[in-house]
């Protein structure tokens, strides 16, 4: 049960979303894409510049920037 920020996930690491500290438009957008507390998430791709990273969530792959992923706390799964 290791806590981490979503942005810290390495490629191939799985986790479960614990808390979302995003706000405004982005928060809504992420919720619509299925980013809610308790959702499984996996980091699947890292763009050539290292940011943004892409995550698999609810069967889709969504890319978000580092500063946004930093606002999401996750619990790493083994």
């Amino acid at each position: 049960m290791e806590k981490a920020l979503l942005s810290e996930l390495k490629k191939g690491e799985h986790a479960v979303i614990e808390k979302m500290d995003t706000n405004g438009e982005l928060r809504q957008r992420l919720m619509d894409m299925g980013f809610v507390e308790g959702t499984k998430i996996e980091c699947v791709r890292i763009s050539p510049a290292g940011d943004p990273k892409a995550y698999r969530i609810r069967g889709t792959v969504i890319a978000i920037r580092k500063e946004d992923a930093e606002k999401i706390t996750v619990v790493k799964s083994l």
């Binding site: 992420l30 792959v61 969504i62 890319a63 978000i64 920037r65």
Partner: peptide, 10 residues
């Protein structure tokens, strides 16, 4: 800059 989300489709 505001948040950016983009879907990478299959």
């Amino acid at each position: 800059t505001t948040g950016f989300t983009i879907e990478l489709p299959p």
